[in-house]
Simulated assay, not measured.
Amino acid sequence: MTTAFDTAARPAAVPGDTLVLAGRPLRDHAVLEETSRYAEDVWVLTPAWLRADQKTLRLDFTLVPPALVDVAKPLFLALLAQDTPPGELPLAIDSIRTYFGCARRFLWWVHGRDRTLRELDGEDLDDYHREITALRLSGGATRCNRRAVRMFWAYRNVLPDHLGQDPLRRSLWQAWARVHRRAGGENLTDRIPEQVVAPLLSWAMRWVDDFADDVLAARAERDRHRGPAARGP
């Protein structure tokens, strides 16, 4: 069945001065106007990395085949803006950086075949899947590569070129998913946001560093008054 989503008009070009982190909370002292813009070759994601460790994250589009940069950029802008289509979940900043590597691998494979994404057929998708599984990556890495490919279908409403079919409808892709189901005991709970954890940790450290001496002295005083009761009435 054809839907309005499938027949959407070609997406409008993104202005070059678009701030790619505009939809993300930023570190203290980070200035949105000083963050990366769409037209730049390298998008620095570090200002949106809210964990305490000073990790450097960036998307370097000079590592993508030049002919496919205009396909990669709108996809990762949508991921950063958390503009997710039905069935897709928003990704954390570090996960977006991980998927960039997987998407880049796929785009170089497409470039090697001298095809557009729309020109790839089901057999092509199966060939790429066989190539990925032949690498004997971990289950998580294989899932990352599979999902990165499917993004070029799931986010088709924002892409100037996209896959012509859903890879997950291919029998080969479905068979792998059946065999490699996620363990039932895996913890799928979302990470507690940094904005929640940081104040809790700060107060915990205050109890250890600032209040501990007084608390221990008060406990000792309490225990002294609660000594063995005198015998008799």
Rank of each mutant, 00 (worst) to 15 (best):
A103Y: 05
F5V: 11
S171V: 09
G101I: 00
T189E: 13
D114F: 03
I96S: 07
A103Q: 02
R115N: 01
S202F: 13
S36H: 02
L59F: 04
D190C: 09
L75R: 08
W109L: 10
R130H: 11
L75A: 05
G164V: 03
A67I: 01
A177N: 13
D60P: 00
D126A: 10
E34D: 11
P193W: 06
H162P: 07
D94C: 03
A154F: 09
E221M: 03
W207Y: 15
L168D: 15
R224V: 08
L163V: 00
P90Q: 03
D190R: 15
A218K: 11
V110K: 00
T46A: 06
W173H: 10
R226Y: 05
D53S: 10
P90C: 03
A177V: 09
L216W: 01
P233C: 00
P228M: 08
A204C: 07
A103W: 11
D213F: 09
V208Q: 14
W207P: 03
W176Q: 02
V14N: 00
R51I: 01
V71K: 08
L216Q: 02
A13Q: 15
F100C: 06
C144I: 07
V110R: 00
T56M: 05
D213A: 15
D166E: 14
E131Q: 14
V44I: 09
A22W: 02
V196N: 15
Q174I: 07
A154V: 04
